[in-house]
Simulated assay, not measured.
Amino acid sequence: MKNARGTISEIKQQLQNDGLTHEDIEVMRQDKRAGVQKLLQQYDQKLEKERQLKDQFEQMKVYEYQLKSKGYYSVAGIDEVGRGPLAGPVVAASVILDPRDESLIGINDSKKLSELKRNQFYETILKCARAVGVGIVDSQTIDEINIYEASKKAMKLAIDDMEVNADYYLLDAMKLEGLQAPQQSLIKGDQKSVSIAAGSIVAKVTRDRLMVEAGKEFPSFEFDRNMGYGTANHLKALEQHGPTPYHRMSFNPVSLYKI
């Protein structure tokens, strides 16, 4: 057995650069140094995680590929966020992707991603998507037509906002009336379809940024941290100051107060 060339630090750098051949790795595997073996263990774990993410990505493209095989080339994934909060809008996004694009490996339901990852994917989606549309329905409209109808309205607005017409729609646990193309509702669609996942990320990041701005206007409510959900600090501020124009007056306990 022989040691690989270089110090532990140099070998670590080589592994991080991903420029090694299979023969290089095999030489490292024969290295007796414990530090090298630990680095190889971490390297193998990294490769396994990357493999799992790629497999997951391929699985999340199954619906898009099936539809493409039937002649549907512009499949829009649609999702909404913000049904549950006490304040702020409900936001939907509609996204048409090229299913061959691998720049979104690792994408998932926006709730399963860190804020950093969501923002990174958001920027990538805006760059690589064939079309992106966003629909926003404010709290006053939510009070007028109820949150379920507001969610559907946001989705339709997102569809209308796209520059490309979809020939098929994949929706997360929702059906819309009046669409000009076929649709399919998928339970937990943001975990099953790469297009719906992209829609959920665009909607989530868009809404979070709106709530950050609302938080600057009403800092006591910490909208930049709770995104309008009924946290303890939010409820305390509601009791002390009453509702803001961003609050949904039809939601409890907001309905107990008057603006």
Score class of each variant (00 low, 15 high):
Gly84Ile: 04
Gly88His: 05
Val132Met: 09
Lys175Cys: 06
Gly135Val: 02
Tyr168Leu: 07
Ile105Leu: 15
Asn146Leu: 10
Met155Val: 01
Asp101Asn: 15
Gly106Glu: 09
Asp172Gln: 02
Val164Ser: 03
Leu170Asp: 03
Lys112Met: 14
Gly71Val: 07
Ile105Glu: 14
Tyr148Asn: 13
Val134Phe: 06
Ala76Met: 10
Glu123Phe: 06
Pro182Leu: 12
Gly106Phe: 04
Lys112Tyr: 06
Val164Asp: 10
Gly106Cys: 12
Ala76Asn: 02
Gln140Arg: 13
Lys111Pro: 00
Gly88Val: 06
Ser94Thr: 08
Tyr73Gly: 09
Val91Leu: 11
Ser151Thr: 07
Met155Phe: 04
Ala131Ile: 05
Asp161Ser: 12
Ala181Asp: 08
Gly77Arg: 06
Asp160Val: 08
Ile105Thr: 13
Ala150Glu: 02
Lys156Ile: 07
Tyr169Gly: 00
Leu179Pro: 09
Arg83Tyr: 04
Ala173Trp: 01
Ser151Leu: 12
Lys127Asp: 15
Gln180Ala: 05
Val164Thr: 12
Asp138His: 04
Gly133Arg: 11
Leu86Cys: 04
Gln140Leu: 12
Gln140His: 10
Gln120Gly: 07
Lys111Cys: 09
Lys111Glu: 10
Pro99His: 04
Ile136Asn: 10
Lys175Thr: 14
Ile125Ser: 00
Pro89Phe: 07
Lys112Asp: 03
Ala158Gln: 01
Asp160Glu: 14
Gln140Phe: 02
Gln140Cys: 10
Asn146Val: 08
Lys111Tyr: 03
Leu113Ser: 10
Pro182Met: 10
Ser139Val: 13
Lys111Met: 09
Ala76Tyr: 12
Val81Glu: 06
Tyr168Asp: 03
Val132Ala: 04
Ala150Val: 09
Asp172Glu: 01
Pro99Gln: 11
Ala93Pro: 00
Ile107Asn: 04
Gln66Val: 15
Ala93Tyr: 03
Val132Asp: 00
Glu123Tyr: 05
Val81Gln: 05
Arg118Gly: 03
Lys70Glu: 15
Asp161Ile: 02
Asp160Ser: 13
Gly84Ser: 07
Ala150Tyr: 02
Leu171Cys: 03
Leu186Pro: 00
Gly178Leu: 05
Leu171Tyr: 02
Asp98Glu: 13
Gly135Lys: 08
Ala154Lys: 07
Asp109Lys: 02
Ser114Phe: 00
Leu116Glu: 15
Asp172Cys: 00
Leu116Lys: 15
Asn119Cys: 07
Leu171Phe: 06
Lys152Asp: 07
Lys117Arg: 11
Glu144Ser: 15
Glu149Ala: 13
Asp167Pro: 03
Asn165Lys: 15
Ala166Leu: 12
Glu102Cys: 13
